[in-house]
Simulated scan of single mutants.
Amino acid sequence: MRGRRFASQQDIERHIANGFGAGAGASYLPWLRVQDVPSRGRSHKIQGVKVDRIHHLLSDLERSYYLICEFSEDVVDIREQYPLLPLEHVQTIAASIGVRYPKYPGTKLSYVMTTDFLLTVRESDGGFKSVARTVKYQKDLEGKGAKRTLEKLEVEKRFWQSQGVEWSIVTEEFFTQDLIKNLGMLRKYSQLPRDLIKSSLHVDFIDCLENSRACPWTLAECLRKIAYRLSISYADARGIFFYLVWNKVIKVDLLDAPLLLTAALPEFEVFQTTGQAFLKEKTS
């Protein structure tokens, strides 16, 4: 699908009228899509498992943070490429702090700034709030070339302050590469076939897993033995294990070690009911 280009105020108004940058949950339409932005790196279109729609992520770093948001039980909605509107309000903020407001390349048309992620998160008292997160590589925030980036981030920060929304920057220092690799693999098992979604099967699976703690087996060997014991296929046993890890019934170290079938059975804890997500977000 061809990307959109903004050459006039009418183009922006048409985009707003068509619902881009509006909605929530599965009905949200990101202001920018992958095909709208000339890529200077890798971009991703990902079918959500938490929110049932295609998510448009403009860098590997955005994808990494998106995986963390999907895994977190505290995050209930993810809206990426969220526009800062109305435009006049954002321009006023920029003018008040002496920042030159950006234009679309090759035009005199004021640019619609966006925030990488607007999240709806569950609070400890059961309520909900919105938080805004901007994702940047650390190198883009340092040195002489970072001045313009920091100016625009200050405008973004003040916009969200004016909305009463918490805002912060996320860099690659927020997570480990092992965590991202693990989450990228685990989310493939976020759902199971209907015949494997049986609480009795999961209880029996966990009992077998508990009985394997002291055995000198690799994870794959352990799962093969559990599969034989429960009269299911190895692929089904593997799927159940990763499904239970993704859904936090089984907790293993995802931060500092790759979850490999060829490695030793990892140390684990079992939670019969999924409680609070163990991965808590840090803010910068």
Rank of each mutant, 00 (worst) to 15 (best):
V34C: 15
Q35V: 14
D36F: 03
D36T: 02
P38D: 03
P38E: 11
P38G: 02
S39Q: 15
S39I: 03
S39A: 15
S39Y: 04
R40M: 00
R40P: 00
R40I: 00
G41V: 00
R42P: 00
R42E: 11
S43Y: 06
H44K: 05
K45C: 14
I46E: 13
I46K: 12
I46D: 05
I46F: 02
Q47F: 10
Q47D: 11
G48Q: 10
G48D: 09
V49S: 11
V49F: 07
V49T: 12
V49C: 08
K50G: 04
V51Q: 06
V51K: 03
D52T: 06
D52G: 01
D52K: 12
D52F: 06
R53E: 13
I54C: 11
I54V: 14
H55I: 01
H56D: 10
H56Y: 11
L57T: 01
L57C: 03
L58T: 02
L58Y: 05
L58F: 07
L58C: 05
S59D: 02
D60H: 00
D60P: 00
E62K: 08
E62H: 09
R63D: 03
R63L: 14
S64C: 15
S64F: 08
S64P: 08
S64N: 15
S64R: 10
Y65R: 14
Y66K: 08
L67W: 09
L67Y: 13
L67V: 04
L67D: 13
I68W: 05
C69V: 03
E70G: 03
S72D: 06
E73H: 09
D74I: 00
D74E: 12
D74F: 02
D77I: 03
D77S: 04
D77N: 07
I78E: 08
I78S: 06
R79G: 07
R79N: 13
E80F: 10
Q81E: 14
Q81G: 07
Q81N: 15
Q81H: 05
Q81C: 08
Y82C: 13
Y82E: 14
Y82S: 14
Y82W: 15
P83L: 06
L85F: 06
L85K: 04
L85C: 07
P86C: 07
P86D: 10
L87T: 07
E88I: 08
V90Q: 02
Q91N: 00
Q91L: 09
I93T: 03
I93K: 07
A94R: 04
A94Y: 09
A94W: 08
A95P: 01
A95D: 15
S96K: 06
V99Q: 14
R100Q: 15
R100G: 13
Y101K: 07
Y101V: 10
Y101N: 10
Y101R: 08
Y101M: 09
P102L: 07
Y104D: 12
Y104E: 12
P105Y: 14
P105H: 14
